[in-house]
Nucleic acid binder design. Structure first.
Lengths: 126, 126
DNA sequence: TTGAATATATCGGCAGCCGATATATCCTGG
DNA sequence: CCAGGATATATCGGCTGCCGATATATTCAA
């Protein structure tokens, strides 16, 4: 799953939204870190629809402007949950390895000089 | 940062590795979930080198076969840590939103019928 | 009346992943 | 002895997918 698809699914996870609303929501939920582009959105929407991860919920006309609302399917919710799990596992693996690398480059120092930052190495990537 | 680049950096986070070793390491650290392809690897390696996130550590000849070892630069370690942070935040945001969506679709039901599965809503996305 | 925000959509360029392919060595099994 | 698989490097073309630019239309504020 691409980054863009992940964020679209995430934006739709709590409630149905229309295209432009997804754009704003992704920016907000990522605290401005992720800016989903208009040119990216509709391709993603088409692909997610084709994969049946999202579905057209309804169409509304608000103040003369068409709003096309999408919502997650059950399959889409599962796919998003699985992806979130993989990302969390990947992030955890990276963090542990960085810590390992730091320990290795620090070399053997007199016992007790290293602050106990080391986390447990439990858990892998699904 | 692409997924492939992320996993290459992760594989290199604890110690220098050569190309083929990265391939095996990524598969192992992801528990078989991620299979980095040979055709993908060298492009990633070139780009990461150009971006100075990794650097050629040394070359060895083991049993007549060349091994080209790469290692993370300080910048590479920082970039990986930052990406891991973003991924963890994104994963957390997705999980919270899925939970919110579940609550919304469940509607108002008689108090006490819903098992207390709801996790804490702490943390945002950087 | 001009510009920004809202709202949709398309298209071409470019970046990047992947399968196929190539080359070469070493080891194991038949 | 030789075929096949693992180890190890690298390249190339095709396809997918992101992004900037562009187009259209309405509403509202300056």
């Amino acid at each position: 799953m691409t980054q863009a698809a992940f964020f679209v699914l995430t934006a739709l996870a709590d409630q149905p939204r229309h295209g432009y609303g997804i754009l704003r929501e992704v920016e907000e939920l990522s605290d401005g870190a992720v800016q989903l582009r208009v040119g990216t959105l509709y391709g993603v929407l088409d692909r997610l629809t084709a994969d049946e991860l999202i579905v057209l919920d309804r169409e509304e006309v608000q103040q003369g402007r068409l709003r096309r609302y999408y919502r997650l399917t059950e399959e889409g919710t599962e796919a998003l949950a699985a992806e979130a799990e993989r990302m969390a596992a990947g992030a955890g693996a990276a963090k542990r390895r960085i810590a390992e690398g730091r320990r290795a480059s620090e070399g053997n120092r007199p016992a007790g000089t290293v602050p106990p930052t080391a986390p447990g190495l439990a858990g892998g990537l699904a």
